[in-house]
Design a protein around this nucleic acid. Structure first.
Length: 421
DNA sequence: TCTGGGGTCCTAGGACCC
DNA sequence: TCTGGGGTCCTAGGACCC
């Protein structure tokens, strides 16, 4: 029997903030989404005050018990780097690690004969906490889906002290009877409702369903989840990162944008960011979609539009800006207050495999040189140090981030300084 | 009472995830 | 004043082909 593990950071973004600000230990802490919109990470102390995932900050911040919660704008430079540190600690000790999300990694726990999995996991938690400064939980069992479920149990039940072992079928059977089917990875709200209508409530009910019926009701996806819960592994650990299929840069504006010039600037900036991501991944985009829409929440007149087009394969920011602005033009209508826009790229192809253009609109050598200079300077001095003029100067559309912590680990000027007397 | 069968590709929409 | 961003996969149905 194989053993998969899932390790994940407790309230990961909050823990990353705490790693460099020890005075936050024991305090309720939350991290907000872009634009300081809603809560996307909460410590146990913050959860105890009734703050829910996705709560709009401006609606809850004056509530009793919430006023003294320590809140942060999201600092992805910090979280991404902390995630990398966790990975490195794990990869040095576990033969195969598959990063699943910024705060979760699957582990191959088929350890050498005589190594006790539980003791090994306990030690792994300790060392991740010591070196990467992130508290974690680990769940493990014979399939990824079971490991993920175990991880959730470890998180919810402090008495388990961060570990949950679901290798044993009897332990699983007991848990399956207690937990609702919706707790399972891959069973979302819609599917849980569908199951509920058929009287399937607990995981045990779901596991007991006829496999053929499951397949008919929930397609191959549901059938796979069921098989995994029964202990048949269908989702292998994968160490190769599949090539990405698309990418998107979409943002809600810091304030509504009515005029064409400002909207164009914002979209130019998103196209620029998309170009950086393409080049970082060694990719070219061949299809682009641009969209913009007004605020769906505040009663403003609704307008939403989008345009898609095939583009000449490129990762050149200036070329992307030109295409994006061309597509945006027919989307914009005078008199509306736009709240969000985005640039999405699809049909990505590896730059290395790109056939030579017969009649390129840009000199490829010059383009590559210009982008290399841009990336080098921005890599050294920070994103946006050097940027196309089309992305604007004042940038009133930029997202709000009123309480951003320092980028402790990725910017020399923002490092913590320890003084020793 | 009657309609051919079988294949591919593309797109929109749904559902899920963190 | 203020409500996130970025992904993946699957299916149904239409267009088109021989």
């Amino acid at each position: 029997m194989r053993t998969f593990g899932l390790i994940d950071g407790n309230s990961f973004y909050c823990s990353a903030e705490r790693a460099f600000a020890p005075e936050l230990r024991g305090e309720p802490v939350i991290v907000l989404s872009n634009n300081d919109g809603c809560a996307i990470a909460r410590t146990a102390e913050a959860k105890a005050r009734g703050i829910k995932m996705g709560d709009a900050w401006h609606l809850i911040r004056e509530r009793p018990g919430v006023r003294d919660v320590r809140w942060f704008s999201s600092n992805y430079a910090l979280y991404g780097d902390m995630s990398r540190r966790v990975y490195e600690v794990l990869a040095a000790r576990v033969p195969r690690v598959e990063p699943y999300s910024i705060d979760e990694m699957f582990l191959d726990l088929d350890l050498p004969e005589g190594v006790d999995v539980t003791a090994f996991c306990r030690e792994l938690r300790d060392v991740v906490r010591q070196i990467a400064k992130i508290p974690t939980c680990i769940g493990y069992g014979p399939t990824k889906t079971i490991a993920k479920l175990a991880n959730g149990v470890a998180k919810d039940r402090p008495e388990l002290r961060g570990l949950c072992d679901l290798r044993d079928a009897r332990a699983r059977a007991q848990l399956y009877a207690e937990l609702p089917a919706g707790e399972v990875w891959g069973i979302g709200g819609r599917t849980a409702e569908k199951l509920d209508r058929r009287g399937v409530r607990s995981i045990a009910d779901f596991v007991a369903m006829d496999a053929k019926q499951t397949r008919e009701l929930l397609t191959v996806v549901g059938a796979r989840v069921q098989a995994e819960l029964r202990g048949t592994s269908c989702l292998p650990l994968s160490l190769i990162v599949p090539p990405r299929k698309g990418m998107a840069v979409t943002r809600t504006f810091g304030q509504p944008v009515g005029d064409w010039a400002t909207l164009r600037e914002a979209v130019a900036a998103y196209a620029t960011r998309a170009g950086e991501k393409l080049r970082a991944g060694g990719l070219l985009a061949t299809v682009m979609t641009v969209f913009c829409h007004t605020n769906p929440h505040n009663g403003d007149p609704w307008h939403s539009a989008q345009r898609t087009a095939q583009i000449e394969p490129t990762s050149d920011s200036l070329a992307l800006i030109a295409e994006a602005v061309r597509l945006l033009r027919p989307c914009w209508k005078q008199g509306y207050r736009y709240s969000k826009a985005g640039v999405m790229l699809a049909e990505l192809v590896p730059a290395a495999r790109q056939p030579v253009q017969l009649f390129p609109t840009r000199d490829p050598v010059q383009s590559a040189r210009a982008m290399a200079v841009l990336d080098t300077i921005n890599g050294r001095f920070g994103r946006g140090t050097l940027r196309p003029l089309a992305t604007g100067i004042a940038r009133p559309w930029q997202a709000q981030a009123r309480n951003l912590s320092p980028r402790y680990t990725t910017r020399a000027g923002e490092m913590l300084i320890a003084r020793v007397w």
